[in-house]
Design a protein around this nucleic acid. Structure first.
Lengths: 187, 187
DNA sequence: ACCTGAACACCGTTCAAGT
DNA sequence: ACCTGAACACCGTTCAAGT
């Protein structure tokens, strides 16, 4: 089995970054949560940039796996599109947290290069999945599925951001409903 | 005329916060940009929270004034709705910056109460203006204009966030086009 | 009225050194 | 292999002192 300290650090860092961003990640608090000293984290991750990149990589890997299993459960693409907003809703449910990569999109100027690349990978995973499902559902024409996928991804990220700023999950639900009513998402 | 240092501090703080957020604001760098010492800022603003609240208040006041003058220039509400995304585009044009309040929406957990309130006021200003213009344009039914206003605001904030994370204004334009194609915004 | 030097307490980060 | 003490650089804030 893998190092439990390393896994514990990754999990704690992810939770913290979803609430306070990359800049809000600090080794003292992180270490205390895990039960070691701040300097010990550097044994597992050579720098904050490495930790950040590892956290985001794990994050999009988990997201990709979750999306794949959703598709495996329900082969109906329209059903998958209806359930997609739940992925972002879960972060709000977990202590009004955000998508890690939305927070880091805001922090982009201050992100190490390795972290930036993982943040882009997260977006790519989501857009590729949405694009595939949109094609299968024949919601839009073939060459419109990727632009539409990007629009859905961006709009949902925005809905989560705004709902977070009011600590109001019902606002998130209302925004998703409005997207459906407007025709951005299938009803 | 008003204190030029105070105004210079407000302007510099706004630019910095649009690129690095509230947590990225620091009095030493800010002072250097203005040409005074960090301690001098405290003469004008009793604390960082006060500075932050003043910056955001000024920001939404300027935004509100800009939106009003747009409406005064063009009484055509559809034309106003077409031009609204330009407001957010301008931040990206200015060094890939973000809407101050989108960044602070992400930072919400770490914001002083006074700053939180100003961030909400910014959203309120935008939603109220959009709602008014949507009503005038008869784009949606009367009781749908506020939910739709919120949806447009959230979706555009999301488009800006995603475009920033790629430093790609053309992606922002493409997202707005997709929103129009999907029916979220009038074409 | 407006600004500054110097200091304080604190925190993120690093690294040589421990076992 | 895994962890830590101690140090460094930095930051928000204060305050007595300057003009």
């Amino acid at each position: 089995m893998s190092s439990s300290s390393k896994e514990a650090i990754l999990a704690a860092a992810r939770r913290t970054a979803q609430a306070h961003g990359y800049s809000g990640l600090n080794f003292r608090d992180l270490a205390e949560e895990v039960g070691i000293k701040a300097a010990s984290i550097y044994y597992h991750f050579p720098s904050k940039a490495d930790l950040g990149a590892a956290v985001v990589r794990r994050y999009w890997e988990d997201t990709a796996a979750g999306l794949e299993s959703m598709l495996a459960e329900t082969s109906d693409p329209i059903r998958c599109l209806r359930r997609y907003p739940d992925v972002f809703r879960k972060s709000l449910e977990a202590g009004n947290r955000m998508c890690l990569c939305s927070f880091m999109a805001a922090e982009y100027d201050d992100l190490p290069e390795a972290v930036k690349q993982e943040v882009q990978a997260f977006a790519d995973v989501n857009v590729a999945w949405l694009s595939r499902v949109l094609s299968a559902a024949v919601v839009v024409g073939a060459e419109e599925s990727e632009p539409r996928a990007r629009a859905i991804f961006a709009a949902i990220a925005g809905a989560q951001l705004i709902a977070r700023s009011r600590s109001d999950i019902s606002l998130y639900d209302a925004l998703i409903d409005s997207y459906r009513a407007a025709g951005l998402l299938p009803t």
